[in-house]
Amino acid sequence: MYMQTRGERIFSYFNYILLFVICIVTLYPLWHVAVASISDPILVFAKRGFYLWPLGKATLKGYSLVLNNPNIVSGFLNTLFYVGVGTTLSMVVTILGAYVLSRKGLYWNKVVMGLIIFYMYFQGGLIPFFLMVKNMGLMDSRWAVILPTVVNTWNLIVMRTSFTTVPDSLIESAKLDGASEWRIVWVIAVPVLQATVAVIALFYAVGRWNEWFNPSLFFTSKNKYPLQVILREILLKNSTQSMTQIGVVGQSEQESYRLLVKYCTIMVATVPILLVYPFLQRYFIHGIMIGSLKG
């Protein structure tokens, strides 16, 4: 068993403290939003800057204004659909593609990689993209949100890179055992890299969760809008900008809740997706590879 030296013990304490400090510092923005979302709206407007506890008497009025929107529930369900179906589809395509592209000795791999990298930098822009969706007959269809963004190039490349770290010997021995390529991907490569697979799935899910631009372009009916588009509407409706553009004043309490609505919207928009990560962490286990080598 390895014994820690004195220096390493000191380092260890130092490390714990440092990480604690980083936690406190990085926690603040979200804490600020959380605290502001239940504060007295007048005080939130007046006192800007740094504060740690809710200002004035805590209130849930902001949340009720946001959550009373009739479209919230359908938006949330739609988002669950886009995240669920979209992420699953993305993962299947990405894993297969990345695995193949990571194999050595395939003649076309360089060409395909070249096409992918070139596309990363040169894109046709909004109008031809929109026409493409239209010509494929996807307007107002849920697939218009999912299909055009099934593969994220960055994710694909990262996935491919981690597949290259899977030892060839592992794959060759599986082949000798008579496993098909399809089986090797799912039974050997993916379990070996389960942490990376989990992270890429997280990236896809978060991307889907935050998506609002494409959905807002391709739907004519609100009943297919994801949560983010609904929340954006609430936010814009309550923004100072849109109120002052009409050059007028309101007089009721709703006006003072504008700011609160902003913070509450952010909370509603982020907290559910924040909860995903802790569940993914159980895939972050060291030493999987040993298991598969020996097994």
């Binding site: 593609g97 596309y119 046709g124 031809p128």
Partner: peptide
């Protein structure tokens, strides 16, 4: 196995690329 990826890039990446 690579086919879906290639199709994706051809349709959604290179289809609209003339926009450049």
């Amino acid at each position: 196995m690579l086919l879906p990826t290639v199709l994706y890039y051809l349709i959604w990446g290179y289809g609209p690329m003339y926009g450049i």
